[in-house]
């Protein structure tokens, strides 16, 4: 029993990371039809921004406080990068979806190269607050605190985004735009500005995911964003491309399936079962994946 609770908790923790990585991707895809390969760069650069912050803050400060500040810096850096990429690179190619995807592919390649030049290809170990490295007893299981933290953060981000979508004007425009972007423009609403904001939000969420993922992995490395991105893509596809609640459900499902298969079958089977899950979802309900903007 306690074993099952442990697996569920770690699976949820992983799902929380996937949700953080996928939420921005899903919003950007839903509103703009852009499959953002540069999202991996946002995550990776966010993680490095966090790492640099923790390095530069005085050692006297506790690791926990430094981590919080690192997250703040990463959020700002991620939002800035997202906004700059949208304004400088994505906007001029408006309505050319394939070219937009290509540009983000180029960016993701170049960003990894820059990171290797600046920080080298070797993983940089990150400091972890002692609280996050220990466990909490729930139902007889020793649950790792970092996973619990991921779940709490993901829940907060999910609730925040849902509230934003439901109760603000920006959210109204995003929801309308996800349904029918052209009609929003045809009603005289400036969608361009919304695109920039959504990219900034996506960048911030990605950077947050990057910092937390580096806590999970124990280090930062240039290729880190790329491996997380593939799972984020799978989550976005299973979640119905552009729906935030769908993304959340899919992230939890993917995290749980992966963790359970890894535990009950064999290490590595989890990764494959995620792809299998995708294939099954595709075969069972391909209609949900048509994703309007193809």
């Amino acid at each position: 029993m306690s074993e099952l609770i442990l697996i569920l908790a770690t699976g949820l923790g992983l799902g929380a990371l996937y949700f953080l990585a996928a939420s921005g991707l899903s919003l950007i895809y839903g509103l703009m039809g852009v499959l953002n390969f540069a999202h991996s760069a946002f995550m990776m650069l966010g993680a490095y921004a966090g790492w640099e912050t923790m390095q530069r803050l005085p050692d006297g400060m506790s690791v926990g406080v430094r981590l919080v500040l690192a997250v703040v810096v990463a959020l700002v850096v991620g939002a800035l990068i997202g906004a700059v990429v949208e304004v400088c690179l994505i906007r001029p190619l408006y309505k050319h979806h394939i070219q937009q995807v290509l540009v983000t592919v180029g960016l993701s390649l170049a960003a990894v190269a820059v990171a290797q030049a600046v920080w080298s290809a070797d993983p940089k170990p990150v400091q972890k607050p002692t609280w996050m490295a220990s466990t909490t007893d729930i139902g007889g299981a020793h649950l790792p605190n970092d996973r619990l933290l991921f779940v709490v953060v993901a829940l907060l981000v999910f609730a925040g985004l849902m509230a934003l979508l439901r109760y603000t004007r920006l959210g109204l425009i995003i929801r309308a735009g996800v349904e029918n972007r052209t009609m929003v423009e045809a009603l005289g609403i400036n969608v361009q500005g919304t695109f920039t904001i959504v990219f900034a939000m996506g960048g911030a969420a990605a950077a947050l995911a990057g910092v937390l993922y580096s806590q999970y992995a124990g280090s930062v490395s240039p290729a880190q964003g790329g491996s997380l991105l593939i799972y984020a893509f799978i989550v976005v596809v299973i979640g119905g491309m552009g729906s935030l609640p769908g993304t959340a459900v899919a992230a939890v499902a993917v995290g749980l399936v992966q963790q359970m298969a890894n535990y009950y079958a064999a290490s590595g089977v989890g990764d494959l079962s995620v792809v299998l899950l995708l294939a099954v979802v595709l075969l069972v309900r391909p209609a949900s994946m048509k994703g309007g903007h193809a």
């Binding site: 895809y29 799978i234 976005v236 596809v237 994946m289 048509k290 193809a294």
Partner: peptide, 8 residues
């Protein structure tokens, strides 16, 4: 599936 979903 078509388009971007096919890519993914």
């Amino acid at each position: 599936v078509g388009g971007i979903a096919f890519a993914m």
